[in-house]
Design a protein around this nucleic acid. Structure first.
Lengths: 312, 312
DNA sequence: TTGTAGGCGTTATCAG
DNA sequence: CTGATAACGCCTACAA
């Protein structure tokens, strides 16, 4: 019976048909837990999200999930969603160690979350979005943040903007820091020495507040690189209230190419991060690692591209 | 050992400590698959999403997931995400029958998806978002759509709008139909007999297109009930391009109170659907059904409220 | 190609 | 309160 169920070819036709007939008449269904027990595979991986509540409404995570599902769809590996919270770290480790989960993908844990370290120490298959906070041997994928920021800088300068500023992401995250550093480096290379900047938190509200600060401190800016589309979306109404037209009075370049970029009015010119591809790669990497624990640790860096719309 | 691990109280202290010591020195972790095999519980439920790609970026789903997670957090039940696709229906049924999943929550399957029917026929625990397309005995939660639409109607009329119209949801969905019916009924009760309407698809793009049609056909409208916030968000730029001010020239009321309502400029007045509460209730209902299969089928209807912001 | 025994790691039952 | 033992349902050698 087992051989028929699992499609082993070396089974006589008559007996196979007999078994299949029995299966369909009795409505037999293999017990997956029993199978899991002997194969030592849960066929399930976790997607670990940061504890912030907002995250689930952030279109970014939707794209990550979509990218992962696209590769999981052809397998029968379950995607289980976990949000960091009190006790969840221990639970994840128990699930992984107890064979209820085969691996985990972690997105945006903060600075000194112990989870990635504990997982790698336990030799459990993990892939991170973005570099680990503290250097360690761990799989991750990332976008070339520096190159992305440079793309924005070049575009604003080419447009003829003279007073260029940037609204950064949170500077306690690698992404926030790298985008700022990359932008400044590119700007100074283009002959624009000092760049005004103010810090945001990647959220819409923080974008609104940051733009208000920026305009108050530097009323003459005519070009801004905003380190996330969501912040740009929050910033645009501020400019509208000031009756500054986009892109004529002030040009805006975002980062991500999330769905928010298209929801902006005018549609946002932005640095595209291939989120779905990156998430798909994470899933593949994780499955590979699960399949063969000897797979060497790897990091994959994706190149961003500039998507030109109407805000710059 | 089993008794210690599972916290049975009637265990001698000395032996308990011996076991606990052994556990911590060896780093023993119980195998969850073996446990699952004998307890016949997977401790996992599925959230089944429609096949449309957009869904994962729709803030609505983020709220559903958040609501479910809030009740699952205190259990050790996994939430597995599944998107309808070729073959997934069979896979879900196999997982449920095979004891790898204990139940399922289904959101927005289309008109004649066979899945809900197949699941209830198999006596598997299911809860639906919204009423089943064809009448059948199945758990579901919903919002009082009719009352919600009436709230919008009353508000627009109270505001003094004279030419009131509505952009509906897709009329092949219960939500789309009920909101339109409720709106018309309330309007005629308020002495506004004929209401112009045009059909949308609940998406931003469809909102843009619908508003363009509406303005072209009825240039004199001064109040619109838009059956989803996302459509309202898509509609606003159309009015801005026409230099119609909101709410003075034209008042807008949305539906959902999703995050999109706050992202509108001006912030959207909208009918609030308590999505998180509803999703939490679905999870509780499902868990109850799993715990005790004899639990009677129930449907829970939530009351909407009007959230007044600046668009009306 | 087919039958069979053994084992995967728990929980649960039943004497003691 | 404790120890032993039979399931739970499947896969996989191994031998025939």
């Amino acid at each position: 019976v087992s051989r028929v169920v699992n499609g082993v070819t070396s089974v006589d036709q008559t007996i196979r048909q007999a078994v299949e007939h029995a299966i369909s008449t009795t409505g037999y269904q293999p017990n997956l837990a029993a199978r899991s027990l002997v194969t030592r595979r849960a066929n399930a991986i976790a997607l670990v999200l940061p504890k912030e509540n907002q995250v689930l409404v952030d279109p970014f995570f939707g794209r990550v999930v979509a990218g992962m599902m696209s590769v999981l769809a052809s397998t029968n590996v379950h995607l289980v969603l976990v949000k960091i919270g009190p006790g969840t770290r221990d639970r994840i480790i128990a699930d992984l160690g107890g064979g209820r989960l085969d691996g985990a993908i972690i997105v945006h844990t903060d600075q000194n979350d112990p989870l990635p370290g504990r997982l790698t120490d336990g030799r459990l298959p993990v892939v991170l979005w973005g570099p680990p906070p503290r250097p360690m041997s761990i799989n991750y994928v990332d976008v070339n943040q520096t190159a992305g920021a440079a793309l924005a800088a070049q575009h604003l300068v080419a447009l003829g903007c003279r007073r260029i500023a940037t609204i950064t992401g949170p500077l306690d995250t690698p992404a926030g820091r790298h985008r700022l550093a990359g932008f400044r480096a590119a700007m100074s290379e283009l002959g624009h020495g000092d760049v005004a900047w103010t810090e945001g938190a990647f959220t819409r509200e923080s974008g609104t507040a940051a733009m208000e600060r920026l305009i108050a401190d530097h009323p003459d800016v005519d070009g801004v690189f905003i380190a996330s589309d969501l912040m740009a979306q929050g910033a645009i109404p501020v400019l509208r209230r000031q009756r500054r037209t986009i892109p004529d009075d002030i040009a805006l370049v975002g980062f991500d190419d999330s769905s928010a970029a298209l929801d902006c009015d005018p549609p946002l010119t932005t640095v595209r991060q291939p989120v779905e591809d990156m998430a798909a790669e994470m899933a593949r990497q994780l499955l590979r690692q699960i399949d063969n624990p000897a797979t060497p640790i790897t990091t994959v860096i994706f190149e961003p591209t500039l998507v030109i719309r109407q805000s710059a």
